[in-house]
Amino acid sequence: MNIREMVEVLNGKILVQNHDPDEELPRGGAADLMSDVLAFGSEGMVLLTGLTNPQVVRTAEMAGINVIVFVRDKTPPPETLELARDSCISLIRTGYTMYEACGRLYQAGLPGRGPVRIENNSW
């Protein structure tokens, strides 16, 4: 699935575009906890999140994530847009909840990372 197709599936709107719409997305992931993103985020993954503060962009930058989708029609503050432009991260907004956005993308063929093996509740 490429960025353009994802935006269609999510009925989304591109807020900051730093990537070619034809760029392929390897997998999807969803989280609100930034440590989770840092631990499980993989290069190129699309991150679906309910948070819109600038730290989400920073976290994505650190985890090598290029595309962030804000769920439930949340409009990020200007600082977030600014930082995304600066850090070469693309931002997209969708009206769906995180659950439904995941559901639709998975249904449309965007894979996840598979089961997680952890020890001791750590990651």
Binding site: S35, A39, N53, N120, S122
Partner: peptide, 26 residues
Amino acid sequence: PGFSTAPEWIRDMGFGAGMGLANIRR
């Protein structure tokens, strides 16, 4: 893992889940 002294508003920013040091170690 999971131990945190962060207040609720920090948690609402997506931080303070007590996984930071575990992540660093990993």
